[in-house]
Design a protein around this nucleic acid. Sequence first.
DNA 1: CTGTTAGCGCGTTCAC
DNA 2: GTGAACGCGCTAACAG
Lengths: 341, 341
Amino acid sequence: MVTIYDIAKLANVSPMTVSRVINNTGNTSEAIREKVNKAIDELEYIPNSSARSLTLKESKLLTLLISDIANPFFTKLARGAEDKARELGYQLMLCNTDENIEKEKEYINVIISTGADGVLFSPANNSSSKHIKLFNKHKIPFVLVDRDIPKTKVDKVLGDNYAGTKLLLNHLFECGHKRIALINGPNNVFTAIARKEAYKEVHQLLGLTVNEELMYELHYNRNNDAEHIVMKLLNLPKNKRPTALFASNNSIAIDMVKALHALNINVPDEISVVCFDDLDPNSAINPFLTVVMQPAYDFGYIGTQLLIDRIKNNSSSNKHREVILKPEFLLRDSTKSIVDR
Amino acid sequence: MVTIYDIAKLANVSPMTVSRVINNTGNTSEAIREKVNKAIDELEYIPNSSARSLTLKESKLLTLLISDIANPFFTKLARGAEDKARELGYQLMLCNTDENIEKEKEYINVIISTGADGVLFSPANNSSSKHIKLFNKHKIPFVLVDRDIPKTKVDKVLGDNYAGTKLLLNHLFECGHKRIALINGPNNVFTAIARKEAYKEVHQLLGLTVNEELMYELHYNRNNDAEHIVMKLLNLPKNKRPTALFASNNSIAIDMVKALHALNINVPDEISVVCFDDLDPNSAINPFLTVVMQPAYDFGYIGTQLLIDRIKNNSSSNKHREVILKPEFLLRDSTKSIVDR
DNA sequence: CTGTTAGCGCGTTCAC
DNA sequence: GTGAACGCGCTAACAG
């Protein structure tokens, strides 16, 4: 391994001078800088960031800890985070918890252990609150993105689950739908809880009755039982049967549509489907689903800005910023007015 | 920050004993181990891996360096890598180069700098060969996945581009297609080069003529000019106009289909489309495209196995393993026999 | 403008 | 079975 001592020797200066040249700290004569830089190039020196972290307690490394690397929402978020990080001189690494609280804990240990300067964190579920304590204990700044952990006093970038739900339900309502099934995410995940809450509130607002028989709960990213749920819903007596499905994320929506397909149910002729979050642009061959799209990129971009602000100001000040990003309604082809039939 | 000194004090032992307990190295009495472990729990101690790396020169950290985090091929690969890494006691972090050679270089610096034990590497393009030298110079083991850099003597997990191309072209040929356009990736990316090569060879094999007018080159993951290309192809005189499109990855294929849609060209009635790599399972509402699927998960899983083998044996031995993973042909709805018309 | 010293947190080596 | 001293690569603080 090449160290500053090696280049110091080669350049005939002291290690300290090498350090100064590398970090642009303190004054160094042009002549010496050239000598040192030449030696650095010659030896292809790369600083050892472990050693640097040890003394500096800073790594210029940020970690994005998310729950599903395969979800386009999060990949876009990651792009945003990366862009902002690089703008500000940081590097971003990703850790994928796979919605698994145990993996999450392990990764947090790694993150603390390796000394990331900060974490952009989208918790797996409500049990993640334990992990928050870890961050605090070890004084590593973090920003919550997309998924809140209520009562946690940190900077946050969240979506507006109520507004999004309202946009979707309003649209369905205007299309004449009165029985709208909710296919929700796990009831221990913030966004799922918030969307269910919103679903109920908006129902009240619209004067619709909330029917427990129309509410289901699925995993956010792998559902083998979508078909099962669809069958149950369709087997309800006609006056209770839903005419529309509200899926609480894109992945669930797709699974529902697939299940409907498999059962030869036409969307939107026989049933309408909407969901939170847009589809992968890469795969929306059919710009099919009517959705509310969230500005995923901005979640990452803004979140990283907040994170770095906090790192730099080293301010565990109590002024915590909470940015709420508005969703946008995208009318496409998976919904249809009921009077058309 | 909590260090072994803190727990040493609390447990009334020497720091060295704490270290032994943590690492299960040397003998320690049961009583002391309990005391120490209790102190560790109480103080929520997490080892400082920078310090550990410094002395040990090992971090139990692997890095997956890929070019497009949004491509389902790579996300599946990442899952496989992660699973194997965890099985074997390593953690995996991701770096996304965005097909950008500059970003790639920066990330490699970070990787070397932070002391990852090894890298699973899918190079951005052929210029990445420079970066290979960096890995070698700094003696960090790496395994090439999906994209080869010819003449590089390391372990590799690659797809069979010839076999895949042949499956696809054979199918089209059997359907009666004789003019098959190639919409390829960048001509400095290994898979694109290999697929073009294969495209030509198989054409010869089938007695088809290769026409330069039918070959185009696009970026692998963002193409604004897909429509432009489609128009050019369709504007060819009828006896030169392609009856099928061979896209060299999923993303390109989707862009082509979108462009065809926009121009009101029906797939597969008016033109057939095939591609390398399956679509995101999450988004294939319409299991639409006929493709050759590669076992993406295995690329990561096997690659990580090779990588860790090499790390553990510390063997820069010359016996380099090269695993070739076979693609699988999936007949779906984007291709049609020409005689049907 | 440049060099020396000390210490970051940990594990290896060598004592006891 | 346990502890003390040293060094990993780097930089802050202090000298000169």
